[in-house]
Amino acid sequence: MIWNLGSINADNFYYLSRLPGAGETIAADRFHQGLGGKGANMSVAAARAGARAVHIGAVGKDGAWAIERLMEYGVDTRHISVVDTPTGHANIAIDAAGENSIVLYPGANHGITDQMTGAALAEAGPGDFLLMQNETNGQGCAARTARTLGLRIAYAAAPFSPEAIRTLADQIDLLVLNGVEAEQLETALKRDLAELGIPNIVVTLGQDGCKWVSNKGSTPQSFSAYDVTAIDTTGAGDTFTGYLIAGLDRHLSMPDAIDLALRAAALMVTREGTADVIPDLKDIQDHDFT
């Protein structure tokens, strides 16, 4: 089972010919709103990958629609609280090549209390996963509680903060971050990834695939991405992470879980949107990636 302490956002998509520069105003060609937030995306991805995903989070009084949609996608929503702060949201600009720029308002995602997290994890058991990102508060208390209960802890380090990783490093079993974040982390801590003492680190590299750094392996292992035509990269990393954790929760080996996650991310970038368009396991099994 996967217990995901994660954000829930309304994603506002603005489709542009190109991303604006500093001080520049560009009219959007199209707009739509959907469910998002790194936490919600990962919960949906894990559920669609066949895992039981329990979301721990918060929305405002305006966020009932988000809870309902998570339920539709197979996520256990019993531990999503309604707080007085408005639901978080993200304004996402997407250019013609599918690249994006995002402005995030955390809102209710920073209204999660240790009591909310503790009540959820009281139902967890040894061997379950605690998945976290950096878009909510309360990661430290959640990690300590999970470690006491015998859970495995996975941390997707975005939005990136080297200090957050430094604080949690001795409790993390699996760290997922992208290539830029990996370089920033090595610079900030003045150590290579393999020297951090974290059992497993997966670095996503976009169209170049990913690499797996294990403290049990002598060298990092590289994995190639599947060749697709990307139209929207938003949520691809979250889809990768959700599928990766779901695969490990289903007792796949790390290489097999990574391959499944790469397939899911490849299919995701051929779609416009975030949580609402994350592929399910049958989509991936039926798709010809050759």
Results as ranks from 00 to 15, higher is better:
M1I: 05
N4I: 03
N4V: 03
G6D: 04
S7R: 08
A10Q: 15
D11K: 07
F13V: 03
F13M: 09
Y15V: 13
G21E: 11
G21N: 09
G23E: 05
E24T: 05
T25C: 06
T25V: 05
A27L: 13
A28V: 09
F31L: 10
H32F: 14
G36Q: 04
K38Y: 08
K38C: 12
G39C: 08
G39R: 01
M42H: 10
S43N: 03
S43R: 01
A46F: 06
R52P: 02
H55E: 09
I56R: 04
G57E: 09
G57S: 10
G57Y: 11
G63Q: 00
W65D: 14
W65Q: 13
A66G: 03
R69M: 09
M71N: 14
D76F: 06
T77I: 04
R78W: 11
H79V: 00
V83G: 00
T85A: 07
T87I: 04
G88I: 01
G88N: 01
G88E: 01
A93L: 14
D95E: 08
A96R: 15
A96Q: 14
I102G: 13
V103H: 12
L104G: 11
L104Y: 07
Y105A: 13
G111C: 06
D114N: 14
T117G: 12
T117A: 11
A119R: 14
A119Y: 09
A122P: 08
E123R: 11
A124C: 09
M132I: 06
E135G: 01
G138S: 00
A142Y: 01
A143Y: 05
A143N: 07
A146R: 01
A146Y: 06
R147P: 00
L149Y: 00
L151T: 00
L151A: 06
R152T: 12
R152C: 13
I153L: 13
Y155D: 07
E163D: 09
A164L: 08
A164G: 11
I165L: 01
I165E: 00
R166I: 08
T167F: 10
L168M: 10
D170Q: 11
L174V: 06
L177T: 01
N178H: 05
V180G: 02
E181S: 04
E186K: 04
E186L: 12
K190Q: 15
D192T: 15
D192H: 15
L193W: 12
L193H: 01
A194S: 14
G197I: 08
I198P: 03
L205D: 02
G206A: 06
Q207Y: 07
D208M: 05
K211A: 07
W212V: 10
V213E: 02
S214F: 06
N215I: 14
G217T: 15
S218Q: 14
T219K: 05
A230G: 05
A236T: 07
F240T: 06
F240I: 12
I245L: 07
A246I: 04
G247H: 02
D249Q: 13
D249M: 10
R250E: 12
H251P: 08
P255A: 10
D259P: 04
A264V: 02
L267D: 09
L267K: 05
M268D: 10
D276N: 09
D280F: 10
D280Q: 08
L281N: 10
K282G: 05
I284N: 04
H287N: 08
T290H: 15
